[in-house]
């Protein structure tokens, strides 16, 4: 969906530029449709946004209620917790919490 949205916006962008040069293309210039049409599109995307926000909220509540699992410490493989020198701010990485 996002890819399609991205593509269509790029397409309308290029068309937008082009329509300024070749007036013949203005009929096909989707985002310069009539004001009423734009208002309808705006209302449609407003509804889509609300549906998406509600879905995201439900998913967020479900995920936060679940909590996160604590996995046990893996063996000290040499490729884990690599330290060649200290960080400029100290011994621990930025998102490193030691209470898993």
């Amino acid at each position: 969906m996002a890819t399609a949205m991205f593509r269509s916006s790029i397409r309308s962008a290029l068309r937008g530029g082009a329509s300024r040069v070749t007036p013949a293309s203005k009929r096909t210039f989707a985002s310069h449709a009539s004001v009423e049409e734009e208002a309808r599109e705006a209302a449609k995307w407003e509804k889509i946004t609300y549906v998406a926000i509600i879905t995201s909220t439900i998913l967020a509540v479900v995920n936060l209620a679940k909590g996160h699992s604590h996995s046990e410490e893996p063996p000290a493989y040499p490729y884990l917790h690599i330290r060649n020198k200290e960080f400029p701010w100290g011994p621990d990485g930025l998102f490193e919490s030691k209470h898993h």
């Binding site: 985002s31 705006a42 889509i48 926000i53 995920n63």
Partner: peptide, 26 residues
């Protein structure tokens, strides 16, 4: 879990920005 949710949220935001675009054009 969170990764899927955090993919849905930017997509929702993308829908909102499309809404904004059409609102400006209208």
């Amino acid at each position: 879990e969170i990764p899927f949710l955090n993919t849905l949220i930017p997509l929702s935001s993308g829908a909102a920005v499309t809404w904004a675009h059409h609102a400006i054009l209208a």
